[in-house]
């Protein structure tokens, strides 16, 4: 299976970034990731060129890994389209840190 199955503990920013980085790789495919420089400053739509169905797949992985107390979809649903478009990896890392 392509899911990480490790039980999550309280993770540091770097550790969360590592997990999210792997999820992005799984969603968009390694051949594309090789050409990208993924950093916490990467934005989902502009830099990583993820479309909405890829963000759905990514959200799914976040939900499974970090558990139900991180309501990632609910958090996203409070944003309008412009906010989702400008969303950066660091925003998600901060959100997960807050929920932990």
């Amino acid at each position: 299976m392509d899911q990480l199955i490790t039980e999550p503990k309280t993770l540091s920013n770097d550790e969360i970034f590592g997990v999210l980085n792997q999820f992005i790789t799984e969603v968009i495919g390694e051949e594309f990731v090789d050409e990208m420089d993924i950093t916490p400053d990467s934005s989902f739509t502009k830099d990583l060129e993820m479309d909405s169905i890829e963000i759905v797949a990514f959200s799914e992985k976040v939900k499974i890994y970090f558990g139900e107390n991180i309501n990632f979809t609910g958090w996203l649903s409070n944003m309008d389209l412009d906010e989702i478009i400008s969303l950066k990896l660091s925003d998600i890392i901060n959100y997960i840190r807050l929920c932990q």
């Binding site: 169905i53 963000i55 979809t73």
Partner: peptide, 24 residues
Amino acid sequence: SNLAVYYFNIAPMLAENFRVILYD
């Protein structure tokens, strides 16, 4: 298209009151 057309806004609004199922 795909289910993402509903996933981020419309589905969560409805899910406050209903069971919501989306599919591709």
